[in-house]
Computed example of a mutant assay.
Amino acid sequence: MPHDPEPPHAATPPAAARRPRNARGEGDRLRIEIVEATLRLIADEQRMRPVPLSLREVAREAGITAPAIYRHFAGKDELVRTAVGHLFGELLADLDRATAAAGALSPAGRLAALAHAYARFAEENPVSFRAMFNGAGPDAEGPAEVAARWHTAVGRLADSGVRLGQSPDAAAVSVWSSVHGRLLLDRPAGGVRQLGDVHDFIDDLARSLSAARLAHG
């Protein structure tokens, strides 16, 4: 997302839309409300389609003036990074819960559980999911933490005797890319080409990895 060109003196929202002033010591609450407003806008494709996300629109959504945002964030770039970091936190929590719940399964089963959780998050948050990977900067921790989950899951396969044909790190990127790319194909395909259910795709992928172990076992 491009750098926000708006100066701190952006237009004030109508009085009816303004939120009550926070009591003394409640500045942290306002910061949270600004992030929540940003997340609502990021998730709303219809509202974001005409123009990119702007601090003026965030201020309107939060019921505050744009200068109030600058008391908590240096600009739009920092605000977007914070909001995207929150989304990655939610995704990571889903992945960790799914992995823990699948603890008694085979390595392939645990990998499938991780991939299903990843796909469900994308299905439930389609617009935000795309924005996460577009809005995360090159040094963002979120994508690196997600990558670590895939590396761990694929590493278990290698430890169990599956011959991946690649190093575990390279195989993790391949598996993650396969699932992520399959999710992205759902949108532009638009029903022109029937791709099948992404969860069936994940199950087939897990079975094929298990078969690699059997073939070489």
Rank of each mutant, 00 (worst) to 15 (best):
G25N: 11
E26D: 15
G27W: 10
D28A: 15
R29V: 14
R31T: 11
R31C: 08
E33A: 15
L39D: 10
L39M: 05
A43K: 01
E45Y: 00
E45S: 08
Q46V: 03
R47C: 00
R49T: 12
V51Q: 12
V51P: 01
P52D: 04
R56G: 14
R56W: 00
E57T: 12
V58E: 05
A62C: 13
G63T: 10
T65H: 10
I69H: 07
H72G: 07
A74H: 12
K76S: 12
L79P: 05
L79D: 02
V80H: 06
T82P: 04
V84R: 07
G89L: 14
E90D: 14
E90M: 12
L92E: 10
A93D: 14
L95I: 04
D96A: 11
R97P: 00
A98F: 08
A101W: 10
G103F: 05
G103E: 13
A104D: 14
S106H: 00
A108L: 03
A108M: 05
L111Y: 09
A113F: 03
A113H: 07
A113G: 06
Y118S: 01
A119K: 03
A122M: 06
N125G: 03
P126W: 10
F129C: 01
R130G: 14
A131R: 09
A131G: 00
F133C: 05
A136R: 00
P138Y: 02
P138H: 06
E141G: 06
A144V: 11
V146P: 06
A147T: 13
R149F: 01
R149T: 07
R149C: 09
W150P: 02
W150S: 02
T152R: 14
T152E: 11
A153T: 04
L157M: 09
G161A: 10
G165M: 04
Q166W: 07
Q166F: 12
S167V: 04
